[in-house]
Amino acid sequence: MGDGLLVLKIFLVVAAIAIAAMLFVALYGAKKPLPQSVVNDAGYRIRKLWLGLVLVVAAIAFALTVPFFPYPWARASVGARHVRVTAAQYAFVMPSVLPVDVPLVFDVTSQDVNHGFGIYAPDGTLFAQVQAMPDYINHLPIEFHVKGHYVVRCLEFCGIGHAYMHGGFDVR
């Protein structure tokens, strides 16, 4: 939540390592060719370790992320205050003021097409989001700890006015 820049940093590091490693493998010793069998013997040994490493990293990443799932069934929100949000081409109908440090659940739906309910924190980062769908109500549990004005933007393409569909609320 609000971790866009963190993801960008992780990505740039991973991409740089990947590019460097691939260039290294392609360029190292390129002037002195080896028979394929020699490269294969070493390569298959490395590949076993590499497979293990990839699977371990994937398992750890999965385990680390599960506690941070944003879903209502994944986090306690008993006794939370429910806030109704109705999206329609091209506006959001919702309260203009919300309380700080109170557990809330946004009950988000749409009157017409699919919309996205994206909440941007006062510092401009994307903070939370959920889809607004016709026929369905999505419950987004959230608690605001920072006061200020939060901008809401549509985050699912909804027609010609999509880019102009925004709203907001103050957290006090």
Binding site: G2, V7, I10, T65, P70, L126, Q129, L155
Partner: peptide
């Protein structure tokens, strides 16, 4: 893969 990680997807979905 970063985007397919659910807690990060909150920040990246449809951006």
């Amino acid at each position: 893969i970063l985007d397919a990680t659910i807690p990060f997807n909150v920040d990246l979905h449809n951006t």
